[in-house]
Amino acid sequence: MKNPISASATGTTAANPFRRDNKGFNRINDRLFSGVIWTAGVLIIAFIFGLLYLILQDGLPKLTWDFLFGLPSEIDEGGGIGPTLLNSFYILFLSLLISIPLGMAAGIYLAEFAPDNKLIGFVRVCVEGLASVPSIIFGLFGIALFVELFQIGLTILGGAISLAFLNLPVLTRVTEESIRAVPAEQKSASFALGATHLQTITRALIPAALNGIITGICLVAGRAFGESAVIILTAGVTTSGEMWDFSLFSPGETLAVHLWYVQSEAIVSDAQEIAQKAAAVLVFVVLLINLLFRIPLWLNSRKTRR
């Protein structure tokens, strides 16, 4: 009579060569895949640093305080970017002031309150479609609304609101997906402790989804700061000529628009140098915005670990 244990052992031994072959094949595939991923990552990082170096190498060493806070010049060389830089931050602040509350409110509604029906599904499709619409479409909408309908001309107010419309779809989708990514157990635990729906959203869901929401705000802030098409069509390509002009009805040329204008239309002799320095400032500020938004992410991660 055959021993079942020895038969089992024999069967295992007989199967071992195949298992070893599969294990070796999987190990080779794993190493190849890891090598491809590492190579792609290194190439992408090298490309990014190379691009940054090409942009910053000519303009960054030539930056001066007179250039950063000086008035732009149409004829004489040596003009600055003071008003355009101020308009860039001013319009960015106003657009985020409008788009963040509305975008978060819309995202929370779609994630927590909206019924699961065809109408809401159609709304989500529309929001996703608006998030991928070219920015010039929002600029044309701004012209129709503020220049033709309200007759207020090319102003900072029109540029900021049009830019907020550009940011709204992205913030809405990011907020909705971040809220939906919070584990259902966390929401159930909040309700079990006697919290209302509002308290659950404000004290449980939003803190847990804060990293994703802040990342979305960071993305739209960087995009809005470097946006030019919307600003050209709604805020114009000139400034009021004053450094500290906070009027909402002044022309709102931003740094990105000024860079485009200097590179394509300006007649000053040092237009190329101005464009290089303006590009360096633009890239540096976008990088700074991304770094500043990392601070609340870092603080929130430390708080959640505790």
Rank of each mutant, 00 (worst) to 15 (best):
A184V: 13
V174Y: 04
T234I: 02
K277F: 06
S8W: 15
L63E: 01
N300K: 11
T64M: 14
I48M: 03
I136S: 13
I136V: 15
L92V: 03
A195W: 11
V220R: 06
V36I: 01
L71N: 10
G35N: 12
W260D: 01
L149R: 15
F284V: 13
A15H: 09
L71T: 01
G241P: 10
Y53L: 06
S132E: 02
G121Y: 04
G79F: 07
S99N: 12
L287M: 14
L119A: 10
I231A: 01
L119D: 06
A209T: 09
L68W: 02
D116P: 08
Y261I: 12
T200P: 01
G82E: 06
R27L: 14
Y109Q: 12
R124L: 15
L299W: 08
D30I: 14
F122D: 00
I108W: 07
V127Y: 01
M1V: 01
I274S: 00
N3G: 12
P134G: 11
G50L: 01
G194E: 10
F25R: 15
I136P: 00
G24S: 15
A114N: 11
N117W: 08
A204I: 11
L145G: 07
A279Y: 06
L193D: 03
C126W: 07
I295W: 10
D21C: 08
L52S: 06
L299P: 05
G212Q: 00
P207D: 13
Q186I: 10
S247T: 14
I206F: 07
S240Y: 10
K187C: 09
V262T: 10
L210G: 10
A105T: 13
A209H: 05
D58I: 12
P134V: 06
L130E: 05
E128V: 03
Q186F: 15
R302H: 05
E253Q: 15
D76W: 09
A256I: 02
P296S: 10
T196L: 08
Q57D: 14
W298K: 13
G24E: 09
D245Y: 08
P251R: 02
A256Y: 08
L51A: 06
K62G: 03
V281Q: 07
I75G: 02
L193W: 02
D58S: 12
L94N: 05
L43R: 03
L85S: 08
L233H: 06
N22M: 10
G222I: 03
G82T: 02
T238E: 14
I231Q: 00
T13N: 12
A229C: 09
L54K: 14
F33M: 15
A189E: 05
A131G: 00
F249M: 07
I206M: 08
P134R: 03
S6D: 15
I289W: 04
L291F: 13
L86G: 01
P207I: 07
K23P: 03
S188F: 03
T155E: 00
L292S: 12
F284T: 04
L198I: 15
G194T: 09
D58P: 05
S95C: 08
A15L: 14
I108S: 01
A105M: 15
I108F: 05
G121R: 04
L291K: 07
